[in-house]
Design a protein around this nucleic acid. Sequence first.
DNA 1: TTAATTTGTTAGACTTATTTAACAAATTTA
DNA 2: TAAATTTGTTAAATAAGTCTAACAAATTAA
Lengths: 168, 168
Amino acid sequence: MSIIENKNLSSNMEDYLEKIAALKKENDVVRVRDISQLLGVKSSSVNAALKSLSKKGLVEHEKYGYVKLTSDGEEIAYKVQSRHDILLKFLTKILSIDDDVALQDACKMEHTISKQTFTKLTKFMQFVETDLDGNKPEWLKRFKHYLKTGRKIRCKMRKLATEKNNRR
Amino acid sequence: MSIIENKNLSSNMEDYLEKIAALKKENDVVRVRDISQLLGVKSSSVNAALKSLSKKGLVEHEKYGYVKLTSDGEEIAYKVQSRHDILLKFLTKILSIDDDVALQDACKMEHTISKQTFTKLTKFMQFVETDLDGNKPEWLKRFKHYLKTGRKIRCKMRKLATEKNNRR
DNA sequence: TTAATTTGTTAGACTTATTTAACAAATTTA
DNA sequence: TAAATTTGTTAAATAAGTCTAACAAATTAA
């Protein structure tokens, strides 16, 4: 864990770290060119970013060399990716957002949500993933029906409970 | 509805419009000073922003006069506020985020979420607000319990259903 | 109705992130 | 290995949004 908690990085700089980490996973080494292509910016912009991130101790980059994340840089990249993943999951699996739109949204929101929101959203997805019986929750199916039709359907379970009460 | 759909405003400019609209609701007239105080920037910054927003046809501002939103400006302000409101609602009522943190998060996310995410989130909140019997959904109570204790509790309804099946 | 205070404006500077253009190093290929 | 190509670097320019500082207009108080 890094000593300095808050590097106060901009969305842009977080993006550089995130993408560098992603590239490293694929290719083992990361060059200016790769980052430039992935982010859709010119290599001179990448250079400027790397300079700034170097000064903050988040990347290592020698002239004409490969780009490496420091452990602090890796830590931040990991956090951003985690935020990205949970947001994408929520948007696609719960809200049924189209994949491409969900991706766009997650790529922006990943830089803004608080630790608390990340934590609670994570717990929400854990909660939804399966109930104690290992089933997807009924309410989510009902919500998807509501999205499709605009109509709320009666909760079967609740209906059962009501029936039981009536029988008493 | 404005003819020009996409004014491609920055978060900052959207914030100016949003806050101008909020101030107008309270005070009927809006001055540079009010905006400056609310956003925590110097009045020279407000001036620069108003100039830029004027050029885009979103505000009207004569030297030393009051600040007014045009109908296009109002429309954008309304959209931003709507996004803000639904996000805040979701964060506080579903995820149980602390009010202050939720506010911070909503104030950032309101500038980034897509139309689709806004729509779906709105529907989600409509869905959750009440079921057909006018009750808050059981699953939300169970989620709050999960947040508190870290333990999933058995869904009573599902239990009932299971019992019924066994009886058959 | 002057003087003091508040509010608004302008010009110029700074920061962040980008670009283009020129050039330099590294790599490929002939 | 020399030439061609790709990749990386630097300097200078641009744009957005902010600030400070100096000043101007409007308002309030004496």
